Amino acid sequence: MPGRLAMTDQLRLPLQSDVPQGASTFVRSASNEEAVRVLERWPDAAGQVMAICGPAGCGKSHLAAIWAERVGAVALNGAEAAHHDPLELEGRPVLLDIAQDADDETLFHLINLAQADGGALLLVSRPSPRFWKVQVPDLRSRLDSIRVTAMEEPDDVVLAAILRARFAERSITPTDEVIDYLVRRIDRSAAAVEDVVARLDEQHRPVTRALARQVLEAAQTLPDEEDAADDEEN
């Protein structure tokens, strides 16, 4: 079932950037429930820093964007964060997505700025900050002490929701039977969803279970056929 993060007046500030409106489409499940519950009540004090980590396609950026919208956070992205004026961030909650791509100086400044009254910093990345490669010793110790909330790869509920959303973008409405069939057979990643939906759309036919089976079987045999063709040419 789609879930919406609880709204609070905690650190409520005007939006300072265009944050995606996605609360109504975020699906709560066992794979993300802990992270959702943590962000519903975070930050509960000024000067807090936290990281959300997880594999590609698990919904961590989506969840973080909902948090940013709720608290009015400034949304930054990876290495581009270095171009933002630090003076505009003091005393503000900040979201830094693809956080491991930010340089050491930027990360250090953002962590320091989060300590100001009204400040907070949410870092989003695939690996935990403990595994980021940094050169500044003080930054290393700070990253090691950050609270980390992990999200898991999409479970059946989330994967089904992603499939329906990607199909809907192409004005395709497959039956629940088709969705269930695909959930049991594709890799649990956003990339796998994008691939299978694109392949099915290319058929220009009603998306049925039979067609889904045909497309998946063709995808599985394609590498072998390509290898055989290469051997013949060689």
Rank of each mutant, 00 (worst) to 15 (best):
R37H: 12
V38S: 09
E40N: 10
E40Y: 09
E40L: 08
P43A: 01
P43W: 02
D44W: 08
A45V: 00
A45Q: 11
A45I: 01
A46K: 03
G47S: 07
G47W: 04
Q48K: 06
V49I: 14
V49K: 05
A51F: 06
C53G: 04
C53R: 03
G54F: 06
G54I: 07
S61I: 02
H62Y: 04
H62I: 02
H62P: 02
L63S: 04
W67Q: 09
W67T: 13
W67N: 11
E69P: 02
E69R: 15
R70T: 13
A73P: 06
N77Y: 13
N77H: 15
N77E: 15
G78H: 05
G78L: 03
G78F: 08
E80Q: 15
A81V: 12
A82V: 14
A82S: 15
A82P: 11
H84G: 03
D85W: 01
D85L: 01
L87C: 06
E88A: 10
L89H: 12
L89D: 08
E90M: 07
G91L: 06
G91K: 06
R92G: 00
R92M: 12
L96R: 06
L96T: 07
L96F: 13
D97G: 07
I98G: 12
I98M: 09
A99N: 06
Q100W: 01
D101P: 00
D101N: 11
D103R: 05
D103C: 09
D104W: 01
D104N: 02
E105S: 12
T106A: 11
L107E: 07
F108M: 11
H109T: 04
I111M: 13
N112A: 13
N112H: 11
L113T: 01
L113R: 14
A114M: 01
Q115F: 02
D117F: 03
G118K: 00
